Simulated assay, not measured.
Amino acid sequence: MRTQLLTPLTRKQWYVTGSFILLVLIVSAAIATLAARWLVGLEPVAEFITRYPGEYELPENTPTGIPAWVGWQHFFNMFFLFLIIRTGIQINRERRPRGYWRSKRGGKKISLTLWIHLVLDLLWIVNGAVFYILLFTTGHWARIVPTSWEVFPNAISAGLQYLSLDWPTHNSWVNYNSLQELAYFITVFIAAPLAILTGLRLSEYWPKNNKALSDTFPIALARGVHLPVMVYFVIFTVIHVILVFATGALRNLNHMYAAQDSTNWTGFGLFVLSLAAIVVGLIAVRPSLIAPLAQRFGEVTAR
């Protein structure tokens, strides 16, 4: 019985499971939309939305607009995150790695897939550190860090408006709505650090000889958190992309990629180029292609 439970799903089973999950999501979304439209039609809820339209005023000194460095940071974050998720899935599915890497200083051999996963993690962390520095030195932190308790009722209001398909009107060039703000805050200041910390705990670089530290943060806990965090990033990305295209694609893409508040095709063109770069990256993280790069930093063997 246990062997049957651990048997990988066939392609047909994956299709059936995926189709069932998709159907459940569609039905759930339809029910949620109907419920939200009924709620916003109630007078007390309508008054609540009028009082809390979905956003609150930012501090007076908050810069207006989205600078170019945000666009570059957004691209590199997306690029590394897609490749990290891809290699993470490969690691979980690998049974017989096609190659191994060992540091020139010795130590345990790891698969080439795990090696590139760790390299991508490091690059993602460096990119995130640069983002943190620029965010707080330029004053743009106030756009994604709540500065008022009104963020919570406004987030509820924005959520109801999204669900009812009567989406909140706002200008993200000046201010994100409160639901966006909370989502960005959770992603940048909670999910990302959790991914880094749990990834470090699962890696060979964790100080395993430090028993007190290892007992404080058990490896089982790290495994139990690391995968859900990855799932969170996937869900966040899907919702984020859907809303970008559904709430004014050209203007939103210009905000994100071209650092301009307009509705021309510049941002869309840069977005397409970024997708092309991601596709190339997803192809390039194969063990056979990364082996020459890995050899520059250690010993690569077939077994």
Rank of each mutant, 00 (worst) to 15 (best):
M1Q: 13
R2Y: 02
T3L: 11
L6H: 10
P8G: 07
L9V: 12
R11I: 03
W14A: 00
V16G: 00
V16A: 01
T17H: 02
G18Q: 06
F20G: 00
L22S: 03
L23T: 12
V24C: 05
I26V: 10
I26T: 06
V27P: 05
A29M: 13
A29L: 12
I31Y: 03
A32M: 12
T33S: 02
T33C: 03
L34G: 08
R37C: 02
W38G: 01
W38P: 02
L39R: 13
V40E: 05
G41A: 15
G41E: 14
F48I: 08
F48P: 05
I49H: 04
T50L: 13
P53C: 12
P53I: 14
P53F: 06
E57Q: 14
P59G: 09
E60I: 14
E60G: 03
N61A: 05
T62W: 10
P63K: 14
G65C: 11
I66L: 08
W69R: 11
W69G: 01
W69Q: 04
V70H: 09
W72H: 04
N77W: 14
F80G: 00
I85Q: 05
G88Y: 11
G88V: 13
I89T: 08
I89L: 10
E94G: 03
P97V: 13
P97L: 13
Y100G: 01
G107K: 11
K108R: 12
K109Y: 02
L112V: 13
L114V: 15
I116L: 12
L118M: 10
V119S: 05
L120S: 06
D121K: 15
W124F: 10
V126T: 11
N127V: 07
N127M: 06
G128F: 15
A129F: 05
F131E: 06
Y132F: 07
I133M: 09
L135Q: 06
H140F: 07
W141R: 09
A142D: 11
R143C: 00
T147L: 11
E150C: 01
L160C: 07
L165P: 01
D166Q: 15
N171L: 11
S172C: 04
V174K: 08
N177K: 13
N177P: 05
E181D: 10
E181P: 02
T187V: 09
F189P: 04
I190Y: 02
P193E: 03
G199H: 05
R201F: 04
R201Q: 11
L202Q: 08
E204T: 13
K208W: 04
A212C: 09
D215E: 15
F217V: 13
I219A: 01
A222Q: 13
R223G: 05
R223T: 06
Y232P: 00
F233E: 03
I235A: 02
F236A: 00
T237K: 09
V238M: 04
V241L: 10
I242H: 00
R251G: 00
N252E: 11
N252K: 11
L253K: 09
L253I: 15
M256W: 00
Y257F: 10
A258Y: 08
A259V: 12
T263L: 12
N264K: 10
T266E: 04
V272G: 00
A277S: 09
A277Q: 11
A277T: 14
I278M: 02
V280G: 02
V280M: 04
L282V: 09
L282Y: 02
S288Y: 04
A294G: 10
Q295P: 00
R296W: 07
R296K: 13
R296I: 14
R296H: 07
G298E: 15
E299V: 15
E299L: 12
E299Y: 06
T301M: 00
A302P: 02
